[in-house]
């Protein structure tokens, strides 16, 4: 299982990489939406994308619109991870095809909780 981490901050990518690696993902990274699209176009199709909103070259919202325009990529789970936290912006991202939305700042548990909601990680519940 691959997670593509899309954020212009290396520090943030590194934080997210540690979290999803612990949850069993291998990772790919991109510093903006265009670099992320380049990964997809080259056939590196992840299970999950973690997407920042504000980035140079191509922002995360535009990236989502692009992914949703290509039916071959419809199985990819898209999760925004961004400091954009206006109510209207969240609605807009969901309408464009984001499955989930995590607002920065977050704790590692928050990412795990959301991926569990999405059925991508199974939480070990004592029987």
């Amino acid at each position: 299982m691959y997670a593509l981490i899309i954020d212009d901050s290396r520090a943030m990518r590194s934080i997210l990489r540690r979290i999803v690696t612990d949850l069993g993902f291998e990772t790919l990274e991109a510093a903006d939406g265009q670099e992320a699209l380049d990964h997809l176009n080259a056939g590196r199709i992840p299970t999950l994308c973690l997407i920042d909103w504000n980035m140079p070259v191509m922002d995360g919202y535009t990236f989502i619109t692009n992914v949703r325009a290509n039916s071959e990529w419809r199985d990819i789970t898209l999760m925004m991870v961004t400091t954009e936290s206006e109510h209207g912006q969240i609605v807009k991202a969901l309408a464009a095809g984001a499955h989930e939305y995590v607002i920065k700042p977050f704790t590692p548990d928050a990412i795990a909780d959301k991926l569990e909601l999405l059925g991508l990680v199974a939480k070990a519940v004592p029987a």
């Binding site: 212009d8 504000n54 400091t83 936290s85 209207g88 912006q89 920065k104």
Partner: peptide, 20 residues
């Protein structure tokens, strides 16, 4: 500052755009 700024933006009337 991106994280702090984005959240300050949400405290204020929107919509607005956050710079890099």
């Amino acid at each position: 500052v991106n994280m702090i700024g984005g959240n300050v933006k949400s405290l204020m009337p929107g919509p607005s755009v956050l710079s890099l």
